[in-house]
């Protein structure tokens, strides 16, 4: 059974002036623990597709299933639970909380989800070690380099044991050296955590390192 399954997904944005069909009969099937890159021009709908799979936005028609979760049947409350239990997000900007240390940033999603504080902190510590930041755990985001911040963000995305990591231009804000270390980590995630990784990127070289590569064009995906 496929881990990620999108079938005939339609999504449009309607404004007073016009109706914009972003996704048109989009289909996607991915197995578990794989890496997938979505390429496409700016405005092609990459971020929209990630937000639909992440349960952040509703869609007009079609079906999206992630593991056992059928998103088209879920209300907002169930979607929030789905996000906390199933999805890990990595954004172009690290979006770490500046008032919290790297360790706290990683632990908070688990703690807010209901884990015991001690367990959440222990798990966060283990994840920071996995991403090579064990010695930076008590540093605040402002004390970390760009690459370290993004690696902290990746550790944070993993803390609730998601089955799917959605990454939107995860190296877009980084210099070449840091981008490489983050990319290397991203593509190791299925091995590290067993999660599937879908990343949206402009960077063709980065995309080609994924097991599955698609180009989003005119609202549909085509394999590259």
């Amino acid at each position: 059974m496929n881990e990620i399954f999108c079938s005939n997904v339609f999504k449009s944005f309607v404004s007073k002036a016009e109706r914009l069909d972003v996704l048109r009969s989009l289909n996607l099937s991915l197995p578990a623990s794989c890496t997938c890159a979505i390429m496409g021009a700016s405005g092609s709908g990459k971020t929209t597709l990630l937000s639909l799979i992440g349960g952040l936005e509703g869609f007009d028609s079609g079906e999206i299933q992630v593991g056992a979760h059928k998103l088209h049947t879920m209300d907002e409350k169930k979607l929030a639970i789905y996000r906390s239990e199933t999805i890990g997000f990595v954004f172009q900007f690290h979006y770490l909380l500046k008032d919290f240390t790297a360790l706290e940033n990683v632990a908070l999603p688990a703690y807010l989800k209901g884990a015991e504080k001690k367990k959440a902190w222990e798990k966060a510590e283990a994840l920071l070690e996995k991403v090579g930041l064990a010695d930076r755990k008590n540093h605040f985001p402002s004390e970390l380099s760009g690459g370290e911040r993004q690696r902290t963000a990746i550790a944070r995305a993993l803390v609730n044991d998601p089955i799917l990591i959605l990454a939107d231009e995860p190296t877009g804000n980084l210099d070449r050296h840091n981008a490489e270390s983050v990319a290397e980590l991203m593509f190791r995630l299925p091995e590290l955590s067993g999660a599937t990784v879908i990343l949206a990127t402009h960077d063709e070289a980065l995309a080609r390192r994924a097991q599955f590569v698609f180009r989003l064009s005119l609202g549909s995906l085509e394999a590259v």
């Binding site: 929030a80 639970i81 996000r83 906390s84 997000f89 979006y95 770490l96 807010l112 989800k113 609730n160």
Partner: peptide
């Protein structure tokens, strides 16, 4: 709003 959206991305509920 950014920090709140970050909490939401964790799956933190509206109640939380």
């Amino acid at each position: 709003t950014t920090e709140i959206a970050i909490f939401r991305s964790y799956g933190a509920s509206s109640r939380s």
